[in-house]
Design a protein around this nucleic acid. Structure first.
Ligand SMILES: [Mn+2]
Ligand SMILES: [Mn+2]
Ligand SMILES: [Mn+2]
Ligand SMILES: [Mn+2]
Lengths: 218, 218
DNA sequence: AAATATTTTTAGGTTAGACTAAAAATATTA
DNA sequence: TAATATTTTTAGTCTAACCTAAAAATATTT
């Protein structure tokens, strides 16, 4: 059995591994968990003892198959709970993350299975992130940052990179939600801002926004 | 903010206070939480610092108004989650307690309010225990142990004292569930066992069972 | 009221998980 | 390559929440 803290470390390493697939550095874990590198080293040793990570001093850390499965299961729970909160309890997508951070640690396999069924076996969470299946696998969907689209390309908004409540609320205000079609009308050389059409309305989008919005090209 | 452990102590004291209304003894808390008396003394001092209990050395402990409110809120969450598990996720009444022990510590006022509404503002949990309202009040319902009924008295089964899964499963097997009518046909002097009618069927009930089943006389 | 038993507190330890500061290893730059 | 910078580890503390053993207070018997 893993403590809440151990689970958070596993999850952090899991997320960092999706980008780099090299050994995950002590510092990057520390930064993600808002803790100190020395604390990370301590914990890594413990996780290594428990055979959920492989650790070589100064060389970073990697999840074992077991570690990956455990981490994916926590992410699965996190995302299922987020769907539950939005679909069943009228939370908005910018309110769910902190509660899901707590709920993801509840230990009950039956609970997860039943929530999954109750929600109709959702494949994605409210932020467009895929929900791992019981075995821990998740299918990667082809997605591009809005900022990478060229003039006259279009696609469907399918996810966010930054899912802070500030960003999500900003998107709400602009009428940008998942599933909406976006067409790029113009790309400004000067500041990399975009002129787009969404909801049959033309609007200007800064590069910072376009760098945090995922599009499925169509 | 209170830690999980602090919350468990408050809840234990709250439950013990419903019976005795005198100072709650160190030993009784230790027994309920399956910990040692010395640990209880430590924690009591901390809770006293935080002004949720009043503590006089050797004289036991009492919840303050604040402490009572906090404890009642944890009980409220516990019981709401139990209703959720049974009503929405097809758990049976003997499976919910351990999961609710975890869920009761999730911190989100909105979550509790929404679950409450989602469940239709239930007044009782699956074991017949009343759910405190937002202010922490709960209405006490007149109830009698089955063992206190005399020959030819009858009533509705409205709760259990022991809610261990063994006992609950035993009741299931016997067809005894909340809401059922029970009529006492005979009371044996010898072993205090009862002959009762439930579901139009006559059956014999041991004193141990009759001592753990609450009836609303009718 | 003494003697005895029980309960409660105190004193002193342990462990998990954090921290700071300093040492050691690795990476970068000159 | 040598000097410098950065990253990582080690060493030593701290706190929350537990523990055991012994001392102190209270309760119960004789
Ligand atoms: Mn989230
Ligand atoms: Mn999410
Ligand atoms: Mn319960
Ligand atoms: Mn209950």
């Amino acid at each position: 059995m893993f403590s809440q803290s151990e689970e958070n470390y596993l999850k952090a390493i899991y997320h960092l591994s999706l980008i780099s697939n090299k050994g995950i550095s002590t510092n990057s874990i520390a930064e993600r968990l808002e803790t100190k590198a020395s604390s990370v080293t301590d914990m890594i040793k413990k996780l290594s003892e428990k055979e959920v990570v492989v650790y070589k001093k100064y060389k970073g850390v990697k999840l074992t198959d077991l570690g990956t499965k455990i981490a994916a299961n926590i992410v699965r729970k996190h995302r299922l709970w987020e769907v539950f909160l939005v679909d069943k309890l009228n939370f908005s997508w910018d309110e769910v993350h902190d509660v899901a951070e707590q709920l993801e640690h509840i230990k009950s396999e039956k609970l997860v299975d039943q929530i999954d069924a109750f929600l109709g076996f959702p494949t994605h969470d409210p932020h467009g992130d895929p929900i791992p299946n019981k075995e821990g696998d998740l299918k990667i969907v082809e997605k591009s940052l809005l900022s990478t689209l060229s003039k006259n390309e279009k696609g469907i908004c399918i996810g966010v990179d930054d899912s802070s409540s500030e960003f999500l609320q900003f998107l709400d205000k602009k009428g940008i939600t998942l599933g909406k079609q976006i067409t790029v009308l113009e790309k400004e050389e000067f500041d990399d801002s975009l002129s787009i059409i969404i909801n049959d309305k033309k609007m200007s989008i800064s590069n910072k926004i376009a760098n945090n919005l995922y599009i499925k090209k169509s």
